[in-house]
C-alpha cells in the first residue's frame, strides 16, 4: 500500500501539506457508495425472452446442438430396452430420422462439446438387447451383429455410438425429449429404417419463453433444474468460453448474474 522508498523532499512535503489539510478538517477518505441493494435486485432480476422457438439437442456424452431446425419422426423396428431422461411420454417406438438429426446438427447455430450438458439432462446410453439372438455365441450375451446393424444407418455409415431406446414420443415432428420417459421394456429400440429413438434428448422452448436466471441461483452459483436448466447451463458455458463476445441468447443477463454470484 505504501511507497516507503519514495521519500524525496517534494514527495514528503506534499504529504505534510496533505496532513495539515487533514488536521484542518479535510476528509482523508472519499467514498462512492455502490447501492448494494439495487445491485442485488437489478442483477438477479433480468429476464431472457426468446423471440423465436429454440431446440437443444443433447446426446449421451453431454454434447449439444442449439438451433431452430425441425426433427422428423419415424418408426423403428426390432425390440429392446432403453431408458433416458427428458420430456418424452414413453409410449410407442417413434424416433427421429437420422437425416433430420444430422441436418439439425449441421444447421445448428451453436455447438457444444462433450460434457457441456450436466449429466442429469443427458439421455442414458442406449442399452443392449436383453433378449439376445441365439446365433452369436458371445460370452456376454450380446448380439454383436444386431448391435452392428443398429449402429449403421441406411447408407451403411456409422451414425451412433449406441443403440436401443427407451421411450417413443408424439409424432408431430417436433422435439419432445426422445429417450425420455423412463423404461419401456416392450418398445422397439435402436434405429431402423434410418430412425433413432435413443441416445438423444431434445428440449424445446417456444417463442416468447421467459427464463429468469436469478431464480436458479443458490449459495454456490447456479442450480440447474428443469428444462430451463439446460438452456442456462449452455448459456453459462458459452459465456465462459466466448467471454463478453458471446452471442448466445441472453448472455448479457447470464453474465450479469454470474458477476453477482462471483463465478
Amino acid at each position: 500500500m505504501q511507497k516507503k522508498n519514495d521519500q524525496s523532499g517534494t514527495f514528503l512535503n506534499r504529504r505534510r501539506q496533505l496532513l495539515k489539510l487533514g488536521a484542518a478538517g479535510m476528509p482523508m477518505v472519499l467514498t462512492l457508495r455502490a447501492s448494494a441493494a439495487q445491485a442485488v435486485i437489478s442483477q438477479l432480476t433480468c429476464v431472457i425472452t426468446l423471440p423465436g422457438s429454440l431446440k437443444i439437442l443433447v446426446d449421451d456424452t453431454g454434447a449439444a446442438w442449439v438451433g431452430d431446425g425441425s426433427l422428423e419422426t419415424g418408426t423403428t423396428k426390432g425390440k429392446g430396452k432403453g431408458k433416458g431422461k427428458g420430456k418424452g411420454k414413453g409410449k410407442g417406438s417413434e424416433g427421429w430420422t437420422l437425416e433430420s438429426i444430422n441436418a439439425f446438427k449441421e444447421n445448428a447455430d451453436f455447438v457444444f462439446d462433450e460434457g457441456s450438458v450436466p449429466s442429469e439432462f443427458r439421455p442414458d446410453e442406449c442399452e443392449e438387447v436383453e433378449e439376445c439372438s441365439s446365433g452369436g455365441g458371445d460370452d456376454d450375451g450380446d448380439d454383436d451383429d444386431e448391435l452392428l446393424a443398429h449402429l449403421v444407418d441406411e447408407n451403411g455409415s456409422y451414425a451412433l455410438n449406441d443403440f436401443l431406446a427407451g421411450s417413443g414420443d408424439d409424432d408431430d415432428g417436433s422435439c419432445h425429449g426422445h429417450g425420455g420417459g423412463g423404461d419401456d421394456d416392450d418398445s422397439s429400440h435402436g434405429h431402423d429404417q434410418g430412425v433413432v429413438d435413443c441416445g438423444y434428448a431434445c428440449y424445446e422452448y417456444s417463442s416468447g419463453s421467459t427464463i429468469t436466471p436469478g431464480d436458479f441461483v443458490n449459495g454456490s452459483g447456479f442450480n440447474y433444474t428443469g428444462d430451463e436448466g439446460v438452456f442456462l447451463a449452455l448459456a453459462v458455458s458459452h459465456s465462459e468460453s466466448a467471454g463478453l463476445n458471446s452471442s448466445f441468447p441472453g448472455v448479457s443477463c447470464v453474465i450479469s448474474v454470474l458477476n453477482f454470484v462471483g463465478q
Binding site: M1, Q2, K3, F11, R14, R15, L18, L19, G22, M28, V29, L30, T31, L32, R33, A34, S35, A36, A39
Partner: peptide, 30 residues
C-alpha cells in the same frame, strides 16, 4: 487496491463501494 499517484483507489468487494484513500487512511487500514 490500485495505487495511482499516491492515492489508493480501493474497491470493497463486500459492500461494492469504491473509496479514494490517501496515504494516511491507507496506512491505517494496513
Amino acid at each position: 487496491i490500485r495505487v495511482m499517484e499516491d492515492v489508493n483507489l480501493t474497491f470493497d468487494t463486500l459492500s461494492g463501494d469504491t473509496h479514494a484513500l490517501n496515504f494516511l487512511s491507507a496506512a491505517v487500514i494496513q
